[in-house]
Amino acid sequence: MTQEINLKSEISATQTGLRLDQALAELFPDYSRTRIKEWILSDAVYVDGVMVNKPREKVFELQQIEINATLEEEVHAAAQAIELDIVYEDDDILVINKQAGLVVHPGAGNADGTLMNALLHHCPNIEHVPRAGIVHRLDKDTTGLMVVAKTVEAQTHLVAALQAREITREYEAIVLGTMTAGGTVDEPIGRHPTKRTHMAVHHSGKPAVTHYRVAEKFRNHTRLRLRLESGRTHQIRVHMAYIGHVLVGDPVYGGRPKPPKAASPEFFEILKNFKRQALHAVRLELAHPVTCEIMSWTAPIPEDMVILTKALRQDTLEHPIEY
């Protein structure tokens, strides 16, 4: 369960010169320093109407503070023996290739059987790290690479690197429609005004930037490579829907099967049976939070997307694109 909260206050004379995180801890003592720092790093804190995401920023008397954040109910997860595809592991971090159908952490409708449960079983000491070391999320049916911190120090560094856009995350997707060129979508994303489980491009949302390039064109679909500058909920799915190219199979944003004219029954069957968004986190690059070594990993395209891509190629071969 989540709760939308709005907090407002004013910096006092005695708080002049304090760091933002220190001042907020004094202004809002009901919330932990860790939670306050998370809010600052997640662009939820505004000083005199301007978003500030640096905990060390100095504050001054009479400045107006506002926090617009989502307060997540604390979930006490149990360790469960769930198989993980571990790509890399050392004393500080863990990189996994997440399978489709695996929810990242417990919540409404998913009390257990999540990545968090699996992490607590694989690495019991991770229970001492907030959110069991989870730094960023992938949607339930999105596959691919995720980094997890095994210590509080590693998590702090990785969260800061993510906010500073120092972690590279590349995705592969298949969308409806033939795209002629790549580009960038720079549109804010927030909660849908009427559908609370949906996100949408909205002027009052948080900044979100998605870069994309065409990797392969098909008759009525396109394979894309995408790179995120921000990490909003459903970002790629929402941005692609916004520009009229919904992800194939997306159950939320309308990626229903739309076979091209004269498509074979076999091709239509593959398209119809693709029940998840065709999205895979294919590449991850970051500076190790302790050694500072630049590290990079890639995850092979999952079998269902490989089969879909082959079917799209065959369909295009049988019905060449006309320019």
Rank of each mutant, 00 (worst) to 15 (best):
M179W: 03
L176Y: 09
R191Q: 10
Y212E: 09
V185R: 02
T184P: 01
G182D: 13
G190L: 01
V209K: 11
H198R: 13
H202T: 12
E187Q: 14
H211C: 08
A208E: 00
T180I: 13
Y212A: 11
L176K: 05
M179D: 11
G205C: 05
V201W: 02
H198A: 12
K195D: 10
I189L: 04
H192D: 09
V185Q: 09
H203V: 12
I174D: 01
M199H: 04
H198I: 02
G177Q: 10
E187C: 11
T197R: 14
Y212K: 04
V175G: 01
A181F: 11
L176Q: 12
T197N: 12
L176F: 07
D186Q: 13
A200D: 03
T178A: 15
H211S: 12
A200H: 05
A208V: 12
H202C: 03
P207G: 05
M179A: 12
D186F: 03
M199N: 02
A200K: 10
H203Y: 09
H202P: 00
I174G: 00
T197P: 00
A208D: 01
P207Y: 01
H192S: 04
A208F: 04
A208W: 01
T197M: 15
G182T: 12
H202R: 13
T194W: 03
P207A: 10
M199P: 04
M199Y: 07
M199G: 00
T210N: 13
T210I: 08
V209M: 09
A200Y: 00
G205K: 01
P207L: 08
